[in-house]
Amino acid sequence: MSGDAAIITFDHVDKFYGDFHALKDISISVREGERMVVCGPSGSGKSTLIRCINGLEFHNSGVLTVDGVEVYEDSKEIYRLRQEVGMVFQQFNLFPHLTVLENLTIGPIKVRKVSPSEAEATARKYLERVRIPEQADKYPAALSGGQQQRVAIARSLCMESRIMLFDEPTSALDPEMINEVLDVMVELADTGMTMVVVTHEMGFARKVADTMVFMDGGEIVETAPPERFFTNPASARCRAFLDQILDH
């Protein structure tokens, strides 16, 4: 862990979808190198929370600072910021008209203006890292869900992001493929990457999380280190939620 410098800070952030109050007075910060796992029932605002971090959604009031840049809709720095923040989606969202290799290189080449040969070398390095170097020339549709999600992780890594956001990365996967994705994420955590992960995989959370966050109804109900979070959560809502997902 590289110190106490906060790299993501929510300061009294509120977010509405029309009349729906999606995020209620969120104040939280993530240190550089910290691994934060966010859980909570569906509709609790966890996805919204992390989608605000790279400006896929914009909050309505309060201050959200990421890597020293304030995030708001007309910010000139938002495009640069998004290069620093990688995101992995529940539905993978690979580009189906491009091969795996092209999926990984299009960002670096078109956005970061890296040379094609350099981008390809980086892409092959990260494909190695997610253990599918042999799939480079295939199209995403030819890959299994687990492989597609690993490609998606590699795509974010290729942008040399310093922060990685995971929005329920294993929820759309068949059970036998979940571990291959989680293994890659654990390795990534070991490299000291700053990670914010929305997931219900509590085994993974126990293994890598520095901080557990429980959200419900748009609020952060509980923030605790995993030892305390799993054994002795302070709030009743959190305890009820954990009972439901850990019971089987």
Binding site: Y79, G86, M87, F89, I106, R155
Partner: peptide
């Protein structure tokens, strides 16, 4: 999701 993926790797709308 394709828009979101493109946006998340820093592409502008035109890109």
């Amino acid at each position: 999701g394709q828009w979101e993926a493109a946006t998340s790797i820093g592409m502008s709308k035109a890109q």
